[in-house]
């Protein structure tokens, strides 16, 4: 698996994918739908899938002395690596907004979502959706990337729209907590996001391994 990760990083991945992790800094943008940062990070991953397809990466990998399911798992590990790096950056920026900048007027007077632990939970859910819809969808054919990506984009922006405005619904104001307000609720929401991410990624990977096993290359 270590060698498959090396292959992913050295041969399959575009520099763009690494650079797009930087969209995690969007967490600091005031008055902007900050969850869109997730979309740009996943767009970077999508670019690498496109590059890998043009480079015959899947066929090359399958011919290596590894089981077919490991080729799928290697790709998932790489995707998770990029996502977790993006998440770490977003978490760092969120921490800044929860502490140093918690009373900054530009963040306080913001109709959209605040950067807090609920936001980080939603980040993980969006990454989970990317893994389920796009990455899982890719392995049904091992070459079609357009359709699963379009479906992911539609679902992702619906979820972003809902998550960014949810706190305006009476009774859900706590979702937009500042600093350490409602910390137990915030922590629970982050834990739910993490659990859903792990579940979506695990189930998607398992199904992708089975799907890829059936494909003729």
């Amino acid at each position: 698996m270590r060698m498959l990760m090396k292959k992913e990083i050295r041969l399959s991945t575009l520099l763009l994918t690494w650079l797009f992790i930087g969209f995690g800094f969007m967490t600091l943008l005031p008055g902007y739908p900050i969850l869109c940062g997730v979309f740009f990070i996943t767009l970077g991953i999508y670019q690498s899938f496109q590059n890998a397809r043009e480079a015959n990466d899947v066929l090359y990998s399958v011919l290596l002395p590894v089981a077919k399911r490991d080729v799928v798992r290697g790709k998932y590990r790489f995707v998770v690596l990029i996502e977790l790096l993006g998440f770490a950056l977003m978490a760092l920026m969120t921490l800044l907004r929860m502490t140093l900048f918690q009373n900054a007027p530009v963040y306080r007077q913001n109709a959209l979502m605040n950067a807090n632990l609920f936001y980080l939970g939603m980040v993980l859910i969006l990454f989970g959706l990317f893994n389920s819809i796009f990455v899982g969808g890719f392995w049904k054919t091992a070459y079609k990337i357009g359709k699963p990506f379009v479906i992911y984009v539609v679902v992702a922006f619906l979820v972003i729209g809902v998550a960014e405005t949810l706190h305006h619904i009476p009774g859900l104001e706590a979702l937009n907590a500042f600093g350490y307000d409602h910390i137990l609720l915030q922590l629970s929401l982050l834990a739910c996001g993490a659990l859903l991410y792990a579940l979506m990624t695990f189930l998607s990977c398992k199904k992708a391994c089975a799907d890829f096993e059936k494909i003729d290359l």
Binding site: K6, R10, L11, E54, A55, D57, L59, Y60, L64
Partner: peptide, 26 residues
């Protein structure tokens, strides 16, 4: 070992880069 015609593996990587990764698998 398997070889098929003129398939283009990683067209924009150098042969050295491809070999460096490939040798680690065997």
């Amino acid at each position: 070992g398997y070889s098929t015609g003129s398939v283009n593996w990683y067209p924009r990587k150098t042969i050295r880069e491809i070999l460096e990764v490939t040798r680690g698998f065997y």
